[in-house]
Design a protein around this nucleic acid. Structure first.
Ligand SMILES: [Mn+2]
Ligand SMILES: [Mn+2]
Ligand SMILES: [Mn+2]
Ligand SMILES: [Mn+2]
Lengths: 228, 228
DNA sequence: CAAAATAGTTAGTCATGCCTAAATTCGACG
DNA sequence: CGTCGAATTTAGGCATGACTAACTATTTTG
């Protein structure tokens, strides 16, 4: 066991810091002060101050001038917030008519206010989904999450077919564009042509054809149909 | 118009203070520092300090040593919070399986985190209800609310019938008792007998009979059937 | 390899919102 | 009408979490 019994509730700030650090830790490398500051839109000294408080609470380890790493306790908190955020997004889209480009901001606030009980009721109402509306995986209540590896649409060869599973952007304008283009998780697309030098991709969805810029297409993550 | 254009968001504390003061203003009389402190579970000096800040923001008027009164702006905020709180309670009971004795705490936190848009979607999903699960009226989005006058169960004469409309307690144990006794808004009861000296009341609900203590019965608010 | 550029930390400030202890005001009552 | 007690406010302190300015460590580069 790792302490953490009957601690007082964490603040919204603390929860958002830990979530941000978790997200930036993708590569397992230490996370820099300035990366946290950029992601959260804060000054570097503010982040330095919070890092000191969080390391005193054993939520992360700080090597001065080197960066921070979450402890097991810190990662637990972060994964709890990720679960909350993504379940809330899924709930708002499924039951309250939210569009996938507007759910993020609402979830960013609600994730700190819902009780454990409410989250589990929402999960149940949704049928314990494994993915949120953007295809992001939802950790289970123990923090376990299947991190699947997908293929960017840019890497699907011309002539092949793929199914969209996830979109890797939070920008509302991009999400709106992708939605009206029909490029949402679950959709099948056939890749027609790649223009050279990172040029656009021509795809077929259902009846019509579309041309998608390379940069955006790189954020559209797919699986290729099983080869058997 | 009363200013209030593009003000920065109010904090959770500020919203709870204004809601508390609104609730204590029922009689139109100024609200005392100690009443606010008691209701919110804070020390009197903390309340004095907040009163100063709120009056600087023109959310209330403070006559030192005399008490406070909400301004129009303060009342607007308070009614917005009451609307949120009661709609959230109704939503959690109707769609997420909450019981009426557990919704309050959840709503107390969520009321500060939901956006105007989410509240209106929840209201719509509920069919724009006029009352929450406890029978408390829900202000409309302009802050208008029908404050009906009900008759306490203790004032229904023996031999008469009444319909329960509202319960005037927030205590979870009382709410649980009332629910299992069948004394919830919408239920019809027949009053059989009043014991003297503020003694218990015997009532009939559907098939069975029950005896209810006077103090609790006073919190069960009813209407008598139309006389025509 | 030393200087410049970049990144990070420290120092000091501020607003919010809570607290306790001390001072003040008000109203009641003798 | 003065005194006593309750209510209220003031004074002072603390944690959180933000900021800017100044300093320091690290990295890059001529
Ligand atoms: Mn957040
Ligand atoms: Mn998402
Ligand atoms: Mn509240
Ligand atoms: Mn209620």
């Amino acid at each position: 066991m790792t302490a953490q019994l009957a601690s007082e509730p964490l603040t919204r700030s603390v929860e958002d810091y830990l979530k941000a650090i978790y997200r930036l830790s993708a590569e397992g490398a230490p996370v820099s002060t300035s990366d946290i500051a950029d992601l959260l839109g804060l000054s570097a000294p503010s982040v330095s101050g919070m890092i000191r408080r969080l390391s005193e609470q054993d939520l992360l380890e700080h090597a001065p001038y080197r960066g921070v790493l979450l402890t097991a306790a810190g990662r637990r908190v972060a994964l709890r917030m990720v679960r909350r955020h993504r379940l809330i997004e899924a709930y708002l889209v499924k039951f309250l008519g939210y569009s996938w480009d507007t759910v993020h901001d609402e979830a960013e606030r609600l994730e700190h206010a819902v009780s454990e009980g409410l989250i589990e009721r929402m999960a149940e109402a949704l049928g314990n989904p494994r993915f949120d509306p953007h295809g992001d995986p939802i950790p289970d209540s123990n923090g376990a999450m299947d991190e699947l590896v997908y293929t960017p649409l840019t890497d699907i060869p011309a002539g092949e077919t793929a199914e969209i599973r996830r979109v890797d952007t939070g920008q509302a304008e991009r999400l709106r564009y992708l939605e009206q283009a029909g490029l949402t998780p679950g959709t099948r697309v056939a890749v027609r042509r790649h223009e050279p030098f990172h040029g656009p991709i021509t795809i077929a969805i259902g009846a019509g054809e579309r041309v998608i810029g390379h940069e955006l297409a790189r954020q559209v993550l797919c699986v290729r149909p099983e080869i058997r």
